[in-house]
């Protein structure tokens, strides 16, 4: 006698928990009833992401690197599930390797991106990278590798993220969220909203507490999103959906320059 499998309910990922949309609505994607995140879900996610920022950015770079590496470990144990929800094993392996690659950047960034500046005066002057804050990500395709390629640089730089998952292929994003939830990523550091892009993207772009917006996966009216983002001088990032480089991390970093006199 065959056993009836227990299905997973695909919900949102906000503040380390997996709530349903406050709207109670779902939409049909990949044969499942996927949570159709609302404006309020997004608002909650941004608020929680902001709260999580101090702890995540305050962590030592070494620790942050270990947490990101732990994400790769969790993904590795869920290879089959991730493969089933993406284009397959190849995409999953590349995604995992990419997370590992970025994990190693956490405690090297400041050395590569920062500098000690030889100013013409009796001052010690240095520049260090710092996270920019809450980053909105419109996840590009392919649904896993695209998301990981955009999320990992945001995360490793110490930012927190509110991700709008691929509208057509949202399930793998929630699967990834489960990896994050079990990987010691503090609650609220990454939040994943599934739902309709046209509803969610403008909300994310216009939110005054979202400091940067990754539009690599924007499939709608990019110009409109950028216009909305101008209201709080958002950093608009057009990156690569399948690339890895420290320059992708740098796009989500602020540079802080500190001066101090040198005197006896």
């Amino acid at each position: 006698m065959s056993r009836l499998p227990v299905r997973k309910t695909y919900k949102l990922f906000i503040g380390g928990a997996f709530p349903r949309s406050e709207s109670g609505r779902t939409y049909d994607a990949e044969g499942a009833n996927v949570a159709r995140g609302s404006r309020k879900d997004l608002r909650d996610a941004v608020r929680i992401a902001r709260q999580a920022g101090a702890g995540w950015s305050g962590m030592t770079a070494y620790n942050r690197g270990q947490v990101v590496y732990r994400v790769a470990e969790m993904m590795e144990t869920r290879r089959a599930e991730l493969a089933g929800l993406s284009s397959g094993a190849d995409e999953v392996e590349r995604a995992i390797d990419r997370v590992v690659w970025y994990a190693g950047w956490a405690d090297k960034l400041a050395q590569v991106v920062g500098s000690a500046n030889p100013v013409a005066g009796p001052y010690f002057n240095f520049t260090i990278p710092e996270p920019t804050g809450v980053v909105g990500i419109l996840a590009p395709e392919p649904p896993l590798l695209g998301l990981v390629s955009r999320l990992a640089p945001v995360l490793v730089g110490g930012n927190t993220a509110v991700v709008v998952a691929s509208e057509a292929h949202p399930l793998v994003a929630i699967e990834l969220a489960e990896c994050l939830a079990t990987a010691d990523v503090p609650p609220g550091v990454v939040n994943v909203i599934t739902g309709l892009r046209r509803e969610l993207a403008p909300q994310l772009a216009s939110h005054m507490d979202v400091v940067a917006l990754d539009v690599t996966g924007a499939d709608g009216d990019l110009a409109e999103l950028e216009r909305l983002g101008a209201e709080n001088v958002k950093r608009i990032v057009r990156g690569k959906a399948d690339g890895q480089s420290p320059y992708e991390i740098e796009a989500f970093l602020e540079l802080k320059t500190v001066w101090h006199p040198i005197g006896m």
Binding site: N125, T127, T257, H260
Partner: peptide, 20 residues
């Protein structure tokens, strides 16, 4: 973007300047 400690309004071409 710029923090002056025990000084203020110092500028130099070698020193990055800009805002958050």
């Amino acid at each position: 973007g710029v923090v002056w400690a025990n000084t203020y309004n110092r500028f130099d071409p070698a020193s990055p300047f800009g805002g958050y």
